[in-house]
Design a protein around this nucleic acid. Structure first.
Lengths: 153, 153
DNA sequence: ATCTTTTCGTTTCATGTCAAAGTGTTTTTT
DNA sequence: AAAAAACACTTTGACATGAAACGAAAAGAT
């Protein structure tokens, strides 16, 4: 029998919460993936969604919003452009920047898909009461803001 | 101004909880990644960890535990084998199966790394009280088990 | 003005990821 | 036992992912 690391009780509690958090995130993600199948990847949808929600952004701003590396975004944007869903334009005031915006096709695609994805997420979270959802959100937020300054609300 | 999808309040609540869950999971994952950097990928560590914890398993069993596809596992196991951390052996009672076990080097590696990863996770979850960690775990568990039978404890 | 540093994005490299099709093995049918 | 179905894993193809090195543009230093 393999001997496990002898953890403190604080460690055991944290690891237990950790794996449950990870599994929940992965399970929900995989279910949400359903409506997108054959249409877009999850990341592609995320990029279109953020553009739809906030309007044109630079590549770096998008990377920050969707929590992906810059190098990664380059490829995702290239694929979206190839498929005619976004367009790029050099920022005239800063020649290093690309301004990314949705094309008409991109807007149409994200508009059609968003309700389906939202419905899938809502169905997933229907296992929790409204109060539980709020509590979960609160705990996740508190968890995530480690190392941040207190300037955020 | 882009017009957002007009969601019901249940939808808004669910989406809000959803993005907080995802961001928390991603943030924690990226911080946990630190101790592994240059040593192993997160998935590789996950595979070694499950083998360390439960002993030798078939490829399919590992895939199930770490929530990855079979095709994916093939590659991850190949890389781990190349690095001398695991060994494969045909199951004599079922010629389709591979039995995967840790090598001495694999055991050593995971033993050295596990405490560091556990400490990183513990530090991350220290932002929450013990009761909050338990609550978060409970909510995640409840969220994840949608569509499951009630046979599980 | 020139040099240096910083910043934005791209490229490269190694790995991970899934879906779908394929290969060989075992089990089930008939 | 031969055929069919189910199963465990592999292969392939397209895409995602991060780190690190790189190129170009902007900002700062002198």
């Amino acid at each position: 029998m393999p001997t496990a690391h002898q953890g403190s009780s604080a460690e055991v509690a944290a690891l237990d919460a950790y794996i449950k958090l990870m599994r929940a995130a992965e399970t929900v993600t995989s279910r949400v993936h359903g409506p997108l199948l054959g249409e877009l990847t999850v990341t592609q949808f995320g990029v279109l969604e953020v553009l739809h929600h906030r309007g044109a952004l630079s590549a770096g701003e998008i990377a920050e919003k969707v929590l992906k590396s810059a190098g990664n975004l380059t490829l995702v944007l290239a694929n979206l452009e190839r498929d005619g869903l976004i367009s790029r334009e050099r920022d005239r005031s800063d020649g290093r920047r690309w301004i990314i915006s949705l094309t008409a096709a991109g807007r149409k695609r994200v508009s059609a898909l968003f309700p389906k994805v939202a419905a899938a997420i809502t169905a997933e979270f229907a296992h929790l009461s409204r109060a539980e959802q709020a509590m979960l959100g609160e705990l996740c937020k508190k968890l995530g803001r480690g190392g941040r300054s207190t300037s955020e609300a």
